[in-house]
């Protein structure tokens, strides 16, 4: 039985529009002040596409290329770092500023803390070695494998580089085939070529 009272209740309440953007901004602001954001992320418009920069309380944890599937990456971070994840571009400013300088040609090495929690085992060794390849120079998969402690594991080294969660900053684009071929790149070979040219020209 629906009586008049129920009809009036079902007619709803007045003035119920929610400004979702304002709510999100307010929550992000307060969460940052209280130190409640364990992973912050923000968009970064680079010359090689719209990147997403993800920063944890320990440092830079991921740089994503467009089309990487941000939602799935955030789910992974929720499991492996913390589910307290909010979009908070301001908290990624240090990295975004250094990326600006890098793409301008005025920065030759990145000075940011790295959170390695997405990388395990041999891959971590490979990426540590890769981090030491200087701006403007290149190495090979075999060389990187050797320096990481397993000279014959160049294929594993290739896999580790291919799944580098922090491209550009951990410069996997500086690793090429021994014969001089470009090899692979998670962001596509055009981007690898762009980065190598940028460093050559600077």
């Amino acid at each position: 039985m629906t009586d008049d009272l129920e009809r009036r209740l079902a007619a709803g309440t007045p003035g119920a529009a929610l400004d979702l953007n304002r709510l999100r901004a307010a929550i992000t602001h307060r969460a940052a002040e209280e130190g409640l954001i364990d992973v912050a992320y923000g968009a970064y418009d680079s010359p090689i596409g719209a990147l997403t920069v993800m920063v944890s309380d320990r440092g830079l944890v991921r740089v994503s290329y467009p089309g990487d599937g941000i939602a799935a990456q955030l789910e992974e971070l929720a499991d492996r770092v913390s589910p307290r994840i909010l979009e908070a571009a301001a908290l990624t400013d240090q990295v975004r500023r250094q990326l600006d300088e890098y793409f301008d040609g005025t920065r030759r090495s990145f000075d940011v803390k790295i959170d390695w929690r997405l990388v395990r085992g041999f891959a971590r060794e490979v990426l540590a070695v890769t981090s030491a390849i200087p701006f403007g120079s290149v190495s090979t998969y075999g060389e990187v494998a050797a320096r990481a402690g397993s000279p014959r594991a160049y294929r594993a080294a290739g896999n580790a580089l291919g799944s580098n969660p922090i491209p550009i900053v951990v410069p996997c684009h500086r690793v090429l085939h021994a014969g001089g071929g470009l090899g692979g790149y998670s962001g596509g070979l055009d981007r690898k070529r762009y980065l190598l040219n940028l460093e050559e020209a600077s």
Binding site: L23, R24, A71, L74, E75, L77, A78, P83, I85, L86
Partner: peptide, 11 residues
């Protein structure tokens, strides 16, 4: 146990 990113709860 998997908790989704907090952001998605707001959305």
């Amino acid at each position: 146990m998997h908790l989704p990113p907090f952001e998605t709860l707001i959305d």
